[in-house]
Amino acid sequence: MRNSNPQTKISEKSIIEALIIASPEPISDGKLSKIIGIDTNDIVSIVQQLNKEYEESERSFEIRKIAGGYVLYVRPDFSQWIVELSSRSDSELTRSMIEVAAIVAIKQPVTKSVIDKVRGVNSVGPLRQLLEEKLITIRSRAKSPGRPFLYSTTKKFLKIFGLSSESEIPTIEELGNLFERFDT
């Protein structure tokens, strides 16, 4: 965190900030560490520090970790105004799409027949829509007879749900415990 280059007085903190701002996609700890040449742990703490500074100086933005990398976001407090200027048309996700996405997210990589079994209906429609929206993808084929496709979630999936990684997807276990608490 100290000045690595005293002549130009550019701190690692500013370099990280600059890289996050300039990167066209989420920039990972690994990539930052490789470019700057410092430990990933240091990067995590510098990013925290940056966010703290932004908050204290009432800046309108913050750094978030989305889909495995850092992205600069406008703070949610400003959304009500930003809505006014944007004409972004989000494609609406239907209930069946969300349901299938949830199954893929948790059971990935997963075949269509497993999804169909869980839902009790044919999921060809929502699967295709999710593929079209690039929220899921086919990474490989199962070894089972017929070598069916195995579906997994994509980076775009993480992005639209604001998750930093697959591990942030709400799990069944978590919810299972929740049920137990309610059911008993």
């Binding site: 969300i98 839902r119 049920f179």
Partner: peptide, 24 residues
């Protein structure tokens, strides 16, 4: 099925929250 439905509902909440987040 109910568990996955719950996950789906949770995802829907995340999605709605994320819809009004704007990257710089």
């Amino acid at each position: 099925y109910r568990r996955f439905k719950q996950v789906g509902e949770k995802l829907r909440i995340l999605l709605d929250k994320e819809k009004i987040r704007y990257p710089v």
